[in-house]
């Protein structure tokens, strides 16, 4: 479980696995850490379905835009489609939605259009990060996309 992963191949296979095998029209939100979401990252694609986790830094009631932070990186979340969720600064939240990168705007202005959100206070983020690495290696190995 110590080999590196071909991220582009991994993402293509995970996307096809989540859409072709089931009758679901909903794409699975690929688990991504905030510090992995930079413009050169294979996850940074317009329309990509992602699941992001972070501590709430800001929330605007007027625009329904939340800013979450984790591992020194921040990301904006559009929460206008969410119901029954109460935002509290410094609490941990997890969102599933689609990445929106509008042409002409700076990469840091990308936003996640959330369709599902939940409070995950109590989640061990260090354990989450480590487990996610193990899980990706397992998935890549299982699906034969692991590179040496």
């Amino acid at each position: 479980m110590g080999a590196c992963i071909d991220w582009n191949a991994y993402i293509i296979v995970m996307a096809s696995a989540s859409s072709s095998s089931s009758a679901s029209a909903i794409k699975a939100g690929v688990l991504v850490m905030l510090d992995e979401l930079h413009p050169s990252s294979p996850f940074f694609t317009n329309g990509a379905s992602l699941r992001l986790t972070g501590r709430l830094q800001e929330f605007s009631v007027e625009t329904a835009i939340a800013v979450i932070v984790d591992g020194g990186a921040t990301f904006r979340i559009d929460t206008q489609n969410l119901r029954d969720i109460h935002f509290r600064i410094d609490s941990l939240y997890q969102f599933i939605g689609e990445l929106l990168i509008q042409p002409g705007l700076q990469p840091h202005q990308a936003i996640l259009q959330a369709r599902v959100g939940r409070n995950v206070d109590g989640m061990d983020m260090h354990l989450y990060r480590k487990s996610l690495q193990l899980r990706r290696q397992f998935e890549a190995k299982y699906m034969g996309t692991q590179s040496t």
Binding site: S18, S22, A23, S24, I26, K27, A28, V30, I96, E139
Partner: peptide, 11 residues
């Protein structure tokens, strides 16, 4: 309902 665990959505 559908469950999403990050690797697929299962009806």
């Amino acid at each position: 309902f559908e469950l999403d665990d990050g690797s697929g959505c299962v009806p």
